[in-house]
């Protein structure tokens, strides 16, 4: 659906995007994970046709996206990083304005506005000025304003902001829309959001995509640092003999720590414990996270 090839974007001396390539397929919930200044918003703005790249190509359904061709981005919706609403106007007036820009009007526009307001639980506040809304309500309206014209591809640039209040409402709405066929590109610097929502994730930093894939694919790229812990005692003693040679075993404060060899399969571990009649609750494991992956790839943390 969306194809980005070798895109470079500079602001004067700053190279905000440094050869970005990626493809987003229909129906994907694509996450763009990276810290502030990574180039997420810049990439969004290029896709939305707000700017032109200095080099590279962007196409939507095979048609080149450009700042001078509004028709090419008709099937596209943008949720800007800031709350892009007219705060003197009511929720309804905002939606009416944005809908009218897409050529919607009359009964159709009214019906879509009703539907949108209902979807974000703002129906009873529809006539109130946006400036009287809480941050979370504004975020919800900011999101739904980009859906009025029923785009195929929705660009969400950190749509939850720093305000956790409406996070779940936003997540649920987006997940429902994706189930109904919407394609989403979702940028965030919260690994929890990317982990929960996204079917595929690109890790971006300093204008470069450092890794691209499903959550599992990405985590596989971490050197296998899984560690399984279980209490020392007579129950578990037989297990120690069977694990010998399969990895590294240490004991500290009455807890055994097992670091498996790289080619060791977790399923083998559980076959052993089952045959010994050991309950699963004895074992805890430390799964790697995107945060750890980011640190591994860039030497920095996401919060920097």
């Amino acid at each position: 659906m969306l194809l980005i090839q070798d895109v470079i974007k500079r602001y004067g001396p700053i190279t905000a995007l440094d050869g970005v390539s990626l493809e987003v397929k229909p129906g994907e919930f694509f996450g763009l994970l990276g810290p502030n200044g990574a180039g997420k918003s810049t990439l969004m703005s290029l896709v939305a046709g707000l700017r032109s790249p200095d080099a590279g190509r962007l196409t939507l359904n095979g048609r080149p996206l450009s700042a001078t061709d509004p028709a090419a981005r008709a099937g596209l919706g943008l949720v800007p990083q800031s709350i892009a609403l007219y705060e003197e106007l009511s929720a309804e007036q905002n939606l009416r304005t944005f809908g009218a820009l897409y050529g919607l009007r009359g009964a159709d526009l009214r019906a879509r506005i009703d539907e949108a307001l209902a979807a974000v639980q703002l129906t009873d506040r529809r006539r109130d000025q946006v400036k009287t809304f809480s941050g979370g309500m504004q975020r919800r309206l900011n999101l739904v304003a980009a859906l009025l014209h029923r785009p195929q591809l929705l660009l969400c640039d950190e749509p939850t902001g720093i305000d956790p209040q409406s996070r779940n409402a936003i997540f649920e709405l987006l997940e429902a829309r994706v189930r109904a066929g919407l394609t989403v590109i979702y940028s965030t610097h919260y690994m929890e959001e990317a982990t929960r929502l996204c079917s595929r994730i690109g890790i971006i930093d300093h204008g470069k995509i450092h890794a691209l894939g499903t959550l599992d694919e990405l985590l596989m790229r971490l050197p296998f640092e899984e560690e399984i812990r279980f209490p020392a005692g007579p129950d578990t003693a037989p297990l120690l003999a069977r694990l010998a040679g399969q990895g590294e075993l240490t004991t500290l404060d009455g807890t055994h720590r097992f670091h498996p060899r790289a080619d060791y399969r977790l399923s083998a571990f559980f076959t052993q414990t089952e045959s010994l009649g050991l309950p699963a609750r004895l074992f805890t494991s430390q799964r790697p996270t995107l945060e750890a992956l980011f640190l591994h790839l860039t030497g920095r943390t996401l919060r920097e």
């Binding site: 939305a48 008709a74 892009a84």
Partner: peptide, 15 residues
Amino acid sequence: KEHGLFQRLLSAPAT
């Protein structure tokens, strides 16, 4: 501009 409204307008069919 600061409220990102131009982004919204320009990503819509407005120029």
